[in-house]
Amino acid sequence: MTAPTPPPQVEPYIEIIGHDAALDLVKAFGGVRVYVPKDPPADSPVVKAIGMAAAVRLAAALGGESPRIPVARAWLVQHYASLQWPVPRIARELRIADFSVRRILERQGGRQVDERQTSLF
């Protein structure tokens, strides 16, 4: 499975702070507003989630604002599935039910198949 295309709501964050930091930001704050300090201190929740370098880049673009961070759950599930993580591990990482992970993967056409398991048909 190839890396999933990020949803349009996440793309601006990827452009500002990079793919990995955007993943961390969405995972930490998805669905809520988060204050982005103009000069992020080391103990800022944003710095703790994405690191100082990414927080400084985010502050340069959005400092002083409180953007609502997108949930992007399907993108996160697809990302971890593209890393060949098993469904239970994805569910634990994202704190969602395993059936939710399977449903997202099936809807996106990225249903995970264990290569060790033989086909029944």
Rank of each mutant, 00 (worst) to 15 (best):
V46F: 01
R116P: 00
F99W: 11
F121H: 09
Q112W: 05
H79P: 09
T5K: 15
G109I: 12
I17N: 02
I50L: 00
P8W: 09
P40N: 05
Y13V: 07
T5V: 11
Q117P: 01
G31Y: 00
Y13F: 13
R92Q: 10
G18I: 08
K27P: 08
P67E: 01
E65D: 13
G31Q: 03
R103E: 02
I16K: 11
S82P: 02
S100M: 14
V77P: 04
G51P: 07
R73D: 00
R68F: 03
T118E: 11
K38A: 08
I14H: 05
G30I: 04
P8K: 13
R57L: 08
F121L: 15
E93A: 11
R95C: 10
Q108N: 11
I96D: 00
E106I: 15
R57S: 06
P88V: 05
V34P: 10
P88K: 08
H19A: 13
R102A: 02
S119A: 10
A72F: 00
Q84K: 15
R33E: 05
E93R: 15
A97L: 06
R107V: 11
S66Y: 01
R116Y: 07
R33L: 03
K27G: 12
R92H: 05
I96V: 12
Q9W: 07
D98Y: 12
K48V: 07
H79S: 09
I50V: 12
Y13Q: 01
M1P: 07
A22R: 06
R68Y: 00
H19K: 12
A55D: 02
V101C: 02
A28V: 03
Y13P: 13
P88A: 04
A55F: 00
K48M: 14
A22V: 05
R111C: 02
P40Y: 06
A3V: 14
D20L: 14
V32E: 12
E15V: 08
V26K: 09
P88C: 05
S44T: 04
R73L: 06
G63F: 09
V32S: 13
I16L: 11
Q9V: 10
S82T: 01
L58Y: 03
E15P: 09
V71M: 10
R33G: 12
V34L: 03
I17M: 15
T2M: 14
V87P: 02
F99P: 08
I14D: 01
A54I: 13
I16P: 08
Y35N: 13
Y35Q: 06
L83R: 14
V26F: 04
T118K: 15
G63W: 10
A21H: 10
R111V: 13
F121D: 13
I96P: 06
P45A: 10
A42L: 12
V77A: 08
T2P: 15
R103L: 11
S119M: 12
Q84W: 12
R111L: 15
G110T: 15
S44Y: 04
A21C: 09
I96N: 02
I69L: 06
A55Y: 03
D39N: 14
A54S: 07
G64F: 04
I104Y: 06
L76F: 04
R73K: 13
R95W: 10
R116I: 09
A61K: 10
Q78Y: 05
G110F: 11
V87H: 01
T5G: 04
G51A: 00
F121Y: 14
E106R: 15
I96Q: 09
Y13E: 02
T5W: 04
A54F: 06
G18M: 07
P88T: 06
A60G: 07
L120V: 14
R57F: 02
P4L: 03
P8S: 15
F99T: 11
I104S: 09
